[in-house]
Amino acid sequence: MAIVADHLGLSWTELARELNFSVDEINQIRVENPNSLISQSFMLLKKWVTRDGKNATTDALTSVLTKINRIDIVTLLE
């Protein structure tokens, strides 16, 4: 997760939308982690794993990252 969080940057909100997080949930992550995109990205991934449990797999994440054109991160995960 740390590799993904380190590289997402501003794309974390796009990833959040693709992972079916609501606008309110995205804003809450922003408010709770106001000074760091990496912290926002990491919190998103943590919430995703908590919410989706065993369905929050590397394959699922890779699929969504591909959908938002972040092949650079997919390559890092391989």
Rank of each mutant, 00 (worst) to 15 (best):
M1E: 07
M1F: 09
M1G: 05
M1L: 10
A2T: 15
A2H: 13
A2C: 11
A2K: 11
I3Y: 05
I3T: 10
I3R: 07
I3V: 12
I3N: 06
V4R: 01
V4N: 04
V4W: 00
A5L: 01
A5K: 04
A5R: 05
A5S: 10
A5M: 00
A5E: 01
D6K: 15
D6F: 04
D6I: 03
D6C: 06
D6G: 10
D6W: 05
D6M: 07
H7C: 04
H7P: 01
H7L: 07
H7V: 09
H7E: 14
H7T: 09
H7Y: 06
H7I: 04
H7A: 11
L8H: 00
L8Q: 03
L8A: 00
L8V: 03
L8F: 06
L8W: 05
L8M: 05
L8R: 02
L8Y: 04
G9R: 05
G9S: 05
G9F: 01
G9N: 12
G9A: 05
L10K: 10
L10M: 11
L10S: 15
L10G: 12
S11Q: 12
S11F: 04
S11K: 03
S11R: 00
W12L: 02
W12F: 06
T13S: 11
T13E: 14
T13F: 13
T13D: 07
T13V: 12
E14P: 05
E14S: 11
E14A: 11
L15P: 03
L15C: 06
L15F: 10
L15M: 12
L15D: 00
A16V: 05
A16D: 02
A16G: 08
R17G: 10
E18F: 06
E18C: 05
E18Q: 06
E18H: 07
E18G: 06
E18R: 00
E18D: 04
L19I: 07
L19P: 02
N20C: 07
N20A: 10
N20H: 13
N20W: 01
F21W: 00
F21S: 01
F21R: 01
S22P: 10
V23W: 12
V23E: 12
D24N: 09
D24Q: 15
D24S: 09
D24C: 07
D24F: 04
D24T: 10
D24L: 08
D24Y: 08
E25V: 07
E25D: 14
E25H: 02
E25I: 03
I26N: 10
I26D: 01
I26L: 00
I26M: 05
I26Q: 05
N27R: 11
N27S: 10
N27F: 08
N27G: 02
N27D: 08
N27M: 07
N27Y: 10
N27A: 11
Q28T: 08
Q28G: 08
Q28M: 09
Q28C: 07
Q28V: 06
Q28W: 03
I29Q: 05
I29M: 05
I29W: 00
I29C: 03
I29N: 09
R30M: 15
R30T: 10
R30L: 13
R30E: 11
V31A: 12
V31P: 01
V31F: 11
V31Q: 14
E32S: 09
E32I: 04
E32F: 00
E32P: 05
E32Y: 08
E32H: 06
N33A: 14
N33E: 14
N33P: 02
P34K: 05
P34D: 08
P34E: 08
P34W: 01
N35D: 12
N35M: 08
N35F: 05
N35V: 06
S36E: 09
S36R: 06
S36V: 00
S36K: 04
L37F: 08
L37A: 11
L37V: 14
I38L: 09
I38H: 09
I38Y: 09
I38G: 13
I38T: 10
I38F: 09
S39N: 15
S39D: 13
S39P: 04
S39W: 06
Q40H: 04
Q40A: 12
Q40L: 02
Q40M: 10
Q40K: 07
Q40G: 03
Q40D: 03
Q40P: 04
S41W: 00
S41Y: 04
S41D: 03
F42M: 15
F42H: 15
F42E: 14
F42L: 12
M43R: 10
M43I: 06
M43Q: 13
M43N: 10
L44T: 05
L44I: 07
L44Y: 04
L44W: 02
L44S: 01
L45T: 06
L45W: 01
L45H: 06
L45M: 09
L45F: 04
L45Q: 02
L45A: 02
K46C: 06
K46A: 09
K46E: 13
K46I: 05
K47I: 04
K47S: 12
K47R: 12
K47E: 08
W48M: 04
W48Q: 02
W48C: 01
W48H: 03
V49P: 00
V49K: 11
V49Y: 14
V49S: 13
V49Q: 15
V49T: 11
V49M: 11
T50D: 15
T50E: 13
T50G: 14
T50C: 12
T50S: 13
T50Y: 13
R51Q: 00
R51W: 05
R51C: 03
D52L: 01
D52P: 03
D52V: 05
D52I: 08
G53R: 07
G53I: 01
G53F: 03
G53L: 02
G53Q: 12
G53T: 05
G53W: 02
K54C: 11
K54H: 14
K54A: 13
K54N: 07
N55T: 10
N55D: 15
N55S: 13
N55H: 12
N55R: 12
N55Y: 12
N55F: 10
A56Y: 07
A56L: 06
A56F: 07
A56V: 13
T57A: 09
T57Y: 10
T57N: 15
T58E: 11
T58C: 10
T58G: 11
T58P: 09
T58F: 11
T58H: 13
D59M: 14
D59W: 09
D59N: 08
D59C: 13
A60V: 13
A60S: 10
A60C: 11
A60K: 11
A60E: 15
A60N: 15
A60M: 14
L61R: 06
L61W: 00
L61E: 00
L61N: 05
T62K: 15
T62R: 15
T62Y: 10
T62V: 12
S63D: 14
S63G: 13
S63F: 10
S63V: 12
S63P: 10
S63Q: 13
V64C: 14
V64I: 08
V64H: 15
V64W: 04
V64Y: 09
L65Q: 00
L65S: 01
L65Y: 03
K67T: 08
K67V: 08
K67N: 06
K67E: 05
I68T: 00
I68C: 06
I68P: 07
I68K: 04
I68L: 08
N69E: 13
N69A: 07
N69S: 08
R70D: 03
I71W: 13
I71C: 09
I71E: 12
I71L: 15
D72G: 01
D72A: 03
D72W: 01
I73Y: 00
I73C: 04
I73M: 05
I73D: 04
I73H: 03
V74L: 06
V74R: 02
V74Q: 05
V74F: 00
V74S: 04
V74W: 00
V74I: 06
T75Q: 14
T75V: 11
T75H: 08
T75S: 13
L76M: 15
L76G: 06
L76C: 12
L76R: 14
L76T: 09
L76D: 07
L76Q: 14
L77P: 03
L77I: 07
L77E: 01
E78G: 15
E78I: 08
E78Y: 10
E78K: 13
E78R: 08
